[in-house]
């Protein structure tokens, strides 16, 4: 029993440990990571024109790598702050990171809920259409899902520009500025790929549900198909949909980066890209900030589901 609990805890902590291993990777490959920061300072202060002299060896440096991981680990356990350097001043990570972090969290959560709501509505609509139209729509959605995320973001931004050019009024701000924060368009761009993914998954699950006996029974009793679909099948497949939220999270995070870069949004990935090369700790902390809340929520609720339903999440990839 103790062993089981211990094993659970170890497995639970493993991905979080993995993030530390990723964040410290520059120390594994570069001999002189501190040098990058030092040079950035000198460049800012005007003492240097370029970083050409910086001596750096590439290779595998295991000792500083493990030291760094351990250092950061101890630091975070003690809740001591990480400092980083930006625009000629030493900054503390913790109040500074919260602003971009909260912005990104708003975008991600908004996109997440938008994706779930719209995918359920669209999937239900598609499901009651006739077979031939369904086939066509499924193929269309599949093709849309295959488009690279840059393409989608750029096209949406550009179509907004076209709209402004032709009609003269801006529907939504396409680029972020502090006076005029842009929320709708980034959330919309972010939610497109997850929505398409969720529609595909939900349709797959609903198709699976179609062949179950309770559906046949209900139809034999003369209940309309749409009614069975909305009430029973949807309820049953939503639970299975929960296990796919990992993939949705992954899609959201990888698209978030593109949206933030293209729409000039000062979010968390932008923060990482600005300060990551000089201070690799920033990457670790930011990835942890994005990842841990989701991971806790996901794992705990999957344990609860497992306890209630008596099945494991192993069977769902």
């Amino acid at each position: 029993m103790y062993l089981l609990v211990l094993r659970r805890i170890v497995y639970f902590l493993m991905p979080i440990v993995g993030v530390f291993f990723i964040g410290a990777l520059p120390y594994l490959f570069f001999s002189n990571v501190q040098g990058i920061e030092a040079v950035a300072r000198l460049l800012d202060s005007g003492a240097l024109e370029n970083a050409l002299f910086l001596n750096q060896d590439l290779g595998l440096f295991f000792e500083p790598y493990l030291d760094k991981i351990w250092d950061l680990f101890i630091n975070l356990i003690k809740f001591s702050n990480v400092t980083f350097y930006e625009y000629q001043q030493e900054k503390l990570l913790f109040p500074t990171i919260l602003k971009p972090y909260l912005y990104s969290i708003k975008l991600v959560l908004g996109a997440f809920f938008l994706a779930i709501a719209s995918s359920i509505i669209l999937a239900l609509i598609i499901k009651i259409l006739s077979d031939r139209i369904q086939k066509g729509i499924r193929f269309l959605f599949f093709s849309l899902e295959s488009l690279p995320d840059i393409f989608i973001v750029v096209i949406i931004q550009y179509s907004m520009i076209l709209y402004v050019r032709n009609t003269g009024n801006l529907l939504f701000p396409i680029v972020h500025s502090d006076q005029n924060p842009s929320y709708f368009l980034p959330i919309f761009c972010l939610s497109i790929l997850p929505t398409l993914f969720l529609i595909r998954t939900l349709l797959f699950l609903l198709d699976d549900e179609d062949s179950k006996t309770y559906v046949e029974f209900a139809r034999a009793k003369g209940i309309r198909y749409a009614l069975i679909l909305y009430i029973h099948m949807l309820r049953n497949s939503l639970l299975s949909l929960f296990y796919y939220s990992k993939n949705v999270y992954w899609l959201l995070i990888s698209t978030l980066f593109m949206v933030e870069t293209i729409m000039a949004i000062p979010g968390i990935t932008d923060f990482m890209l600005d300060n990551g090369p000089t201070t690799p700790d920033v990457i670790t902390v930011s990835v942890l900030l994005m990842f841990v809340p989701f991971y806790l929520l996901f794992t705990l609720s999957s344990y609860v589901l497992e306890y209630k339903l008596g099945r494991t999440n192993e069977e769902v990839a």
């Binding site: 991905p15 993995g18 993030v19 995070i253 978030l256 990935t269 890209l273 990551g276 990835v287």
Partner: peptide, 20 residues
């Protein structure tokens, strides 16, 4: 352990290592 590679956006990790 390697599940974390799935969660840390690959682009940012690659950028962190290649850009310098």
């Amino acid at each position: 352990l390697f599940e974390s590679f799935y969660y840390a956006p690959a682009t940012i990790v690659a950028y962190l290592l290649i850009y310098p």
